[in-house]
């Protein structure tokens, strides 16, 4: 079985990952709902994961895919703790709008 990289230059994967990453950045700047901001962070992590996998297949080296595995584990931990914090914030002040979370500003 041949890899798709026989037919697709690596630059296309770099461009695709950059596009998805930029969409994630746009979403973080764009939305006020903290849950959607979390989703956009997941989108950025996935773009990076895909690029690491593409480079790993390209070089025939499994280290990149091991790193993707670790990134997935860290992302799962991050989402669990982040969503628990969001639920706690919602229980306390009844909103998850990031513009309302300004109690810490001086």
């Amino acid at each position: 079985m041949n890899s798709i990289l026989q037919y697709i230059p690596l630059n296309y994967y770099v461009a695709l990952a950059a596009i998805i990453f930029a969409i994630g950045v746009m979403g973080v700047l764009f939305r006020r709902n903290a849950i959607i901001i979390f989703m956009c962070i997941e989108l950025m992590l996935n773009a990076v994961n895909m690029l690491l996998t593409a480079f790993s297949t390209f070089h025939g080296d499994e280290s990149g895919q091991v790193m993707v595995f670790f990134i997935m584990a860290v992302a799962a931990a991050e989402v669990a703790v982040g969503l628990a914090i969001l639920v706690m914030i919602y229980n306390n002040i009844r909103t998850v709008d990031v513009d309302e979370l300004n109690k810490l500003q001086g």
Binding site: S3, P9, T53, H59, G60, E62
Partner: peptide
Amino acid sequence: AESLAANSTRTDVGTVANLGKAL
């Protein structure tokens, strides 16, 4: 950068056996 085609002919990098050995 010049357009690159795959420089590795290995197709078994992502199998469970290989990744398990690395992990």
